[in-house]
Amino acid sequence: MGTTFVSINKKGFWLRDRLLELWLCFAALHIEDSPEENSEAHKIRDQWLVASRGAFTGCVPDGLDEAVSTESGKEIVVSAISSLLKELKQAPDELDKDVLNLMGSFSKFAGNVETFRLVEISQAVLDLIEGKVGTDDASDTSFMPGCR
Rank of each mutant, 00 (worst) to 15 (best):
V133P: 14
L88T: 02
G104H: 01
S69P: 00
S82N: 15
A110C: 11
K74P: 00
I8Q: 02
G2I: 08
V78H: 02
F109H: 14
V125A: 06
V6F: 04
E130Y: 01
K10I: 03
F56M: 05
V78I: 10
T115G: 14
F143V: 09
D136N: 12
K86D: 13
V60T: 11
D96Q: 08
F116G: 07
F5A: 10
S82T: 14
E66T: 03
E40K: 08
T4Q: 10
G104F: 04
M103H: 14
D136T: 08
S34K: 02
L49Q: 13
P92C: 02
V68G: 03
G134V: 05
V77L: 11
S39D: 03
E36H: 04
L29Q: 13
T70S: 11
T70V: 03
E37L: 09
H42R: 06
R53W: 07
N112P: 11
G2P: 15
Q123K: 09
S83P: 02
C59D: 15
E32A: 02
A51V: 10
I44M: 00
M103N: 05
D33N: 13
T57A: 09
S107T: 04
L19I: 05
L22H: 05
D17E: 09
V99H: 06
I31F: 11
R148W: 13
L84M: 08
G58D: 07
D93E: 11
V99A: 12
D96T: 03
M1D: 14
I121D: 04
L85F: 00
T115E: 12
L88S: 08
F143G: 01
L95P: 11
S34L: 07
V99N: 12
W23R: 08
D96E: 12
S142G: 05
P145D: 05
H30F: 07
S139C: 01
H42I: 05
D46L: 14
G111H: 13
V133E: 05
T4Y: 04
G131C: 05
G111S: 15
S105M: 13
P92N: 08
W23V: 08
G104C: 01
R53Q: 14
M144V: 15
P145S: 05
S122Q: 04
H42A: 08
L15P: 06
E114V: 09
I81Y: 05
E94W: 11
P35Q: 09
S69I: 00
A28R: 10
E75F: 10
C59L: 02
K97V: 07
L19T: 06
N9S: 11
D98C: 12
L24F: 11
A41V: 04
P92K: 10
S39Y: 00
D33Y: 10
